[in-house]
């Protein structure tokens, strides 16, 4: 049987399990590993993880379904997550959704026909002073304007990333001497 995990990933698993006094503690990290490998957490991966951790597949499944960040089916290559919570909504979540729609033609829950972008609305991402904002895969893009949004989406489409992603966060930025 082929594994949902690459050989390199499989070699990391015992080290992850060893961090916890009880094996089940390694469940969230192993689900992350599965998602890194496949872009989502497949049922095959869940069964394998259950085997590693001496759990039943339903024990893994019930945990997976509780958390919003594990995808249970493949999604677009770039997952756009727009914060819809109050602090961002006060400063323009609706505008941002409109800009994305104008650029990509997709609404919340949809994926572009080329399979590149999936758009979700999510709750607070901890970026309340720098809204409106979106997360694309691992990166945060904040204080968005229409021009900035267009550039980010162009860059990501072309190169998979954009230099406008927020680095180690500080806002307001310290004064430069």
């Amino acid at each position: 049987m082929t594994s949902a995990f690459s050989k390199a990933a499989q070699e990391r698993i015992p080290g992850i399990i060893a961090r916890y006094a009880e094996k089940r503690g390694a469940l969230l990290p192993l689900l992350w590993l599965a998602q890194e490998e496949q872009g989502y957490v497949s049922e095959e991966a869940m069964k394998e993880i259950a085997g590693w951790l001496d759990l039943t597949p339903p024990q893994v499944y019930e945990t997976v379904t509780f958390y919003t960040m594990y995808n249970r089916r493949p999604i677009g290559k770039y997952h756009i997550q727009v914060c819809r919570s109050l602090m961002c909504a006060l400063v323009g979540t609706d505008n941002l959704l409109g800009w994305i729609h104008a650029k990509l033609g997709i609404k919340t829950g949809q994926t572009t026909p080329d399979g590149l972008f999936t758009l979700s609305q999510v709750e607070c991402l901890g970026s309340c002073g720098t809204g409106p904002m979106m997360q694309i895969n691992d990166d945060y893009y904040e204080r968005l304007t229409q021009d900035k949004t267009n550039r980010v989406l162009d860059d990501v489409k072309r190169e998979g990333k954009c230099p406008l992603a927020t680095g180690p966060f500080m806002f307001p930025e310290p004064a430069q001497k």
């Binding site: 919570s85 109050l86 602090m87 709750e123 607070c124 901890g126 970026s127 309340c128 966060f169 806002f171």
Partner: peptide
């Protein structure tokens, strides 16, 4: 995760 809070991140 408390909406309105982004200090720990920094």
């Amino acid at each position: 995760s408390e909406p309105g809070t982004f200090k720990d991140r920094q």
